[in-house]
Lab assay of single mutants.
Amino acid sequence: NQASVVANQLIPIQTALTLVMMRSEVVTPVGIPAEDIPRLVSMQVNRAVPLGTTLMPDMVKGYA
């Protein structure tokens, strides 16, 4: 099973992502693949992302 990127904390809207905000976890449905974590650093979320939420491509500006 492929690991996805999951929020390690509440990430407020417009926040630039850092490594400490994300973790990898095998979840359903599958979100952004964990191997993309380095690419996500400094990208902004376009909505508030609660703790434990799987990051989906449409939540990160410039990802999809």
Rank of each mutant, 00 (worst) to 15 (best):
N1H: 12
N1Y: 15
N1R: 05
N1W: 12
N1K: 08
N1I: 15
N1M: 15
Q2H: 14
Q2P: 15
Q2N: 11
Q2D: 13
Q2G: 14
Q2F: 14
Q2T: 14
Q2V: 13
A3G: 13
A3R: 07
A3V: 07
A3I: 06
A3N: 07
A3P: 10
A3K: 10
A3L: 11
S4G: 04
S4N: 00
S4W: 03
S4K: 00
S4F: 03
V5R: 00
V5G: 02
V5C: 08
V5T: 06
V5M: 02
V5K: 00
V5D: 01
V6A: 03
V6N: 02
V6C: 05
A7K: 02
A7F: 03
A7T: 09
A7G: 01
A7M: 04
A7C: 04
N8M: 07
N8I: 05
N8L: 05
N8T: 13
Q9S: 10
Q9N: 07
Q9H: 08
Q9V: 09
Q9E: 12
Q9W: 08
Q9F: 14
Q9K: 15
L10D: 13
L10F: 15
L10C: 15
L10E: 09
I11K: 00
I11M: 03
I11H: 01
I11Q: 02
P12Y: 05
P12M: 07
P12E: 09
P12A: 08
I13V: 14
I13F: 14
I13H: 12
I13G: 15
I13Y: 14
I13K: 12
I13N: 15
I13L: 14
Q14H: 15
Q14E: 15
T15V: 10
T15W: 05
T15R: 07
T15Y: 07
T15Q: 08
T15M: 09
T15P: 03
T15C: 08
T15I: 06
A16M: 12
A16S: 14
A16D: 06
A16L: 10
A16C: 14
A16T: 13
A16W: 12
L17F: 02
L17Q: 01
L17H: 00
L17V: 03
L17C: 04
L17M: 14
L17T: 01
L17N: 02
T18G: 03
T18H: 05
T18Q: 09
T18K: 08
T18Y: 04
T18D: 05
T18V: 06
L19I: 09
L19M: 14
L19K: 06
L19G: 05
L19N: 06
L19D: 05
L19S: 06
V20D: 10
V20K: 13
V20N: 15
V20M: 15
V20I: 13
M21I: 03
M21D: 03
M21T: 00
M21Q: 02
M21P: 01
M21V: 03
M21S: 03
M21A: 04
M21R: 00
M22G: 01
M22R: 01
M22A: 01
M22E: 02
M22F: 08
M22S: 00
M22Y: 03
M22K: 01
M22Q: 00
R23N: 05
R23A: 06
R23F: 04
R23V: 06
R23Y: 05
R23P: 01
R23K: 10
S24Q: 11
S24D: 06
S24W: 07
S24K: 14
S24C: 08
S24N: 06
S24R: 10
S24P: 12
E25W: 06
E25A: 13
E25T: 07
E25D: 12
E25S: 11
E25H: 08
V26C: 09
V26Q: 10
V26H: 12
V26L: 10
V27P: 01
V27F: 03
V27I: 06
V27M: 05
V27L: 04
V27E: 01
V27Y: 02
T28I: 09
T28S: 15
T28F: 11
P29G: 04
P29E: 06
P29R: 04
P29A: 03
P29V: 05
P29K: 05
P29W: 04
P29T: 05
V30R: 07
V30L: 13
V30H: 12
V30N: 11
V30A: 09
V30M: 11
V30P: 11
G31M: 02
G31E: 02
G31T: 02
G31H: 02
G31I: 03
G31L: 01
G31A: 03
G31Y: 04
I32V: 08
I32W: 03
I32A: 01
I32D: 01
I32L: 04
I32F: 01
I32N: 00
I32T: 02
P33V: 08
P33G: 05
P33F: 08
P33K: 08
P33H: 08
P33A: 08
A34I: 07
A34K: 05
A34R: 05
A34T: 07
A34M: 06
A34V: 08
E35I: 12
E35P: 06
E35G: 11
E35W: 09
E35A: 11
E35F: 09
D36W: 08
D36R: 09
D36Y: 12
D36F: 13
D36C: 14
D36N: 13
I37P: 02
I37F: 03
I37N: 00
I37S: 03
I37L: 12
P38G: 12
P38N: 12
P38L: 13
P38K: 13
P38S: 13
P38M: 10
R39P: 01
R39G: 07
R39V: 09
L40G: 01
L40A: 00
L40Q: 00
L40K: 00
L40R: 00
V41Q: 06
V41I: 13
V41G: 00
V41N: 01
V41W: 01
V41L: 14
S42Q: 13
S42K: 10
S42H: 10
S42V: 04
S42P: 00
S42L: 09
S42A: 11
S42W: 08
M43Q: 07
M43R: 08
M43C: 08
M43N: 04
M43S: 06
Q44C: 15
Q44W: 12
Q44L: 13
Q44N: 09
Q44V: 14
Q44A: 09
V45R: 01
V45Q: 01
V45I: 05
N46W: 11
N46L: 15
N46E: 11
N46Y: 13
N46C: 09
N46S: 11
N46T: 14
N46A: 10
R47F: 08
R47H: 09
R47W: 09
R47E: 07
R47M: 10
A48S: 12
A48P: 11
A48G: 07
A48C: 12
A48E: 12
A48F: 11
A48R: 12
V49D: 02
V49T: 05
V49C: 06
V49R: 01
V49E: 03
V49N: 02
V49K: 01
V49W: 04
P50V: 07
P50M: 12
P50D: 15
P50R: 12
P50W: 05
P50T: 10
L51I: 10
L51S: 14
L51P: 10
L51A: 13
L51N: 15
L51E: 13
L51C: 13
L51Q: 13
L51V: 11
L51W: 13
L51H: 10
G52R: 03
G52L: 04
G52D: 07
G52C: 04
T53Q: 12
T53F: 14
T53I: 08
T53V: 13
T53S: 12
T53D: 12
T53A: 13
T53R: 10
T53P: 01
T54G: 00
T54M: 04
T54H: 02
T54I: 13
T54P: 06
L55H: 01
L55W: 03
L55R: 01
L55D: 02
L55Q: 00
L55C: 02
L55G: 00
M56W: 06
M56E: 06
M56A: 06
M56P: 02
M56G: 04
P57R: 06
P57V: 05
P57T: 05
P57H: 07
P57L: 04
P57G: 07
P57Q: 07
P57S: 11
D58M: 11
D58K: 07
D58F: 14
D58L: 08
D58P: 05
D58R: 07
D58C: 15
D58G: 09
M59S: 05
M59Y: 11
M59E: 01
M59Q: 03
M59W: 11
V60D: 01
V60K: 02
V60L: 09
V60E: 01
V60N: 01
V60C: 02
K61M: 12
K61L: 13
K61W: 10
K61E: 09
K61T: 14
K61V: 14
K61C: 15
K61D: 12
G62F: 09
G62T: 05
Y63P: 03
Y63L: 06
Y63D: 03
Y63M: 05
Y63K: 02
Y63I: 05
Y63E: 01
A64C: 15
A64H: 15
A64E: 13
A64T: 13
A64M: 13
A64S: 14
A64N: 11
